[in-house]
Amino acid sequence: MRKTKEEKIFNFVNLVFMVFFTIIIAFPLINIVALSFNDPLDALKGGIFLWPRKFTFESYSTVLENHAIYLAFIVSVSKTIVGIVLHTFVTAITAYALTREDLIGRKWFEIMGILTMFVNGGMIPTFLVFKSYGLLNNFWVYILPVLFSFYDVIIMMNFFRGIPRSLEESAEIDGATPFTVFAKIIIPLSLPVIATIALYHGVYQWNDYMTANIYVNNENLFPLQQLLYKIVSENLSPTVATGTAVVRQTTSQSMQLATMVITTIPVVAVYPFLQKYFVSGLTLGAVKK
C-alpha cells in the first residue's frame, strides 16, 4: 500500500523523536564512562562528552589499589552465584511439586504462597526476627530470605504445565523413577524458563544494596553496591582522607566514577542474554493470573 503524505510526516517526526530519546537515555551512561577515563582535575573544567580529553587509567588504578574493592567484588560474585543456584533449584522443585494435582496439601501451599505475595512483616519486624536467627552480619542474609519467591514459582509452574503429560507417563511406564523424570525430562525441556528465573535473580542479587544496608555493618561482607553506596553517600573514601578539599573531592569523585563503571560492567555484559527473556519473564507470570 502506498504511504500517504500524512504518514510520511508522522514517520519522519517519530524517527527524529526516537533518535533524540535514545540520546537522552544513552548519553549520561556514555558520559560517565568517558569521565572515568579522564584526568580527574582536568574533568573539573567540564566539556567532556563522549570521549575523554586527557586519557588516563589513574582512577582505575586508585580504585584497584584499594583492598576493599576486591573483597566487595568477591562478596558480590559469591552472593550472585550462590543465590542463582539455590534460588533456581528451590523454585524448580517447588513449582514441579505444585503441578501434581493430587499433592496432599496443595491448596494450603498455594494459599500460603499467595499470602506471601501480598502481606509481609515490613522492615522492622523482619529485621528483628532475622536478628534473632543470627542473620545480622552473616553472608546468608543475602541468600536465604529471597530463596523462595512465589512469583517465580508461578512463572515456572505455568511453564511446566505446558509440557505434555504423556512424556512423563511414557517414561514412568518404562520404569523411570520420579527423580529421573524430573532430572532427565522436565529440566532439559525447561531451560528457557530456568534461564529467565536465573538471570532475573542474578541481576537482583548483583544490584541489591538495601539488604547489606539494613543487615550488615561488617565492611568485609559489603557487596560492591554497598561499597559504592558508602562512597556516594559519604563522597569521601577512607583511603584519601588527607589533602586539600579540591584534591579530596576530585579523588573521591574519580574513585566513585571508576567504581560505578566496574560495578556496571557485569550487568551490561549479561544484558544481551537477558534480553531474550524480558517478555517471557514478565508475561508468563502476569498474564496467567
Partner: peptide, 23 residues
Amino acid sequence: FYQAMIWPSVILMILFNFIPMYG
C-alpha cells in the same frame, strides 16, 4: 518425592515470611 520437593519452601515461607508477620 513430591512432598520432599515442597517442604523446603514451606519451611522458608514460615521462617522468612510468616514469623516476621507475627512480629
